[in-house]
């Protein structure tokens, strides 16, 4: 740089000699203690549900009525349920379903919401107005109500359940992505691209989408949290998987009646598991939001 600009050396330049982007991100995330704990919890449960059964063998298919309704003991660490299944094993087994369905439904909701919101935000005008009124209408109908109506019609299999949950939850992320898209499409670098003849396609794929990634990731994390929670409701509402398969929500509803007779081991572990995992994903989402400095929600 020539001598002419020496006085300008005093000008402030952001993070000139700082750590690289990803190291800074990890540092920022670690500062949020709850988020770190959340990450640990999620990792724990994934290992618990998927690797646990390899260590702690139980029979989740056949009933053993002779062992039914026993409290926690040496042979059954968390007791047994009404048909004799080991509760701890059931917790692992059900966890697999809860986590997979929750993750899939959450991601599906994010994908649908992102596409809808991005189109509405980028195209703008009356298209945006109509698309957002549809979203408003969808939000106006409580998800639990729709799910209950569906339960009255039929009992869907796991795959259909993921689709249904996804379609019930995509509304909220669509609004977030729309707001992000609106703001991004008016950034100077997008305007510059359009002015020199760049196409809309290029603007979206090279600029708008990559810069929305942080918002999408944060939204996805919260969606997964919401989806896992919704899965827990689903069995309560009569939409759940059929026995002997189960998920945490199923364990909860099966054990509800038993609670009054004091058999706490039937609902406390599954209830706590749901709370911990949902909590964990929410905390991670919170931490990611700090890292990316994302507004909203």
């Amino acid at each position: 740089m020539s001598a002419v600009i020496q006085p300008g050396k005093a000008e402030f330049s952001a993070q000139v000699a700082g750590p690289t982007g990803s190291r800074l991100a990890i540092a920022r995330f670690s500062r949020n203690r709850l988020a770190v704990v959340g990450l640990a919890v999620v990792v724990f449960f994934v290992l618990f549900c998927f690797l646990g059964p390899l260590v702690y063998h139980t029979d989740q298919l056949h009933t053993a009525l002779s062992e039914a309704n026993q409290g926690p003991s040496g042979s059954h660490l968390l007791g047994t349920d009404a048909v004799g299944h080991d509760e701890l094993g059931r917790l692992m087994y059900g966890g697999k379903v809860s986590l997979i369905v929750g993750l899939a439904a959450g991601l599906l909701a994010t994908v649908i919401g992102t596409v809808w919101g991005a189109v509405a935000g980028y195209v703008g005008g009356w298209v945006d107005a109509v698309m957002m009124r549809v979203v408003d209408a969808g939000i106006a109908i409580p998800a639990l109500f729709i799910l209950l109506v569906i339960s009255a019609i039929s009992t869907p299999d796991t795959f259909a359940l993921v689709i249904i949950l996804g379609f019930v939850s995509w509304l909220v992320p669509s609004r977030l992505i729309r707001a992000e898209t609106l703001s991004l499409k008016n950034r100077d670098y997008v305007l510059t691209l359009r002015a020199i003849g760049g196409s809309h396609t290029r603007a979206i794929t090279r600029h708008v989408l990559p810069n929305s990634v942080s918002t999408i990731v944060v939204a996805a994390t919260f969606q997964v949290a919401d989806a896992i929670l919704l899965v827990a409701y689903v069995s309560y509402l009569g939409l759940g998987v059929q026995p002997p398969a189960t998920d945490w929500g199923g364990m909860l509803s099966a054990g509800l009646t038993a609670v009054y007779s004091g058999r706490w081991w039937l609902i406390l572990p599954s209830g706590l598991a749901v709370i911990l995992v949902v909590c964990a994903f929410n905390a991670i989402g919170d931490g990611l939001r700090d890292v990316f400095d994302v507004r909203g929600r």
Binding site: D188, Y189, T192, A195, I196, R206
Partner: peptide, 12 residues
Amino acid sequence: GVVLQDPVASLD
């Protein structure tokens, strides 16, 4: 060619 005002917002 286009050059706009805000040095931060002009570059992706």
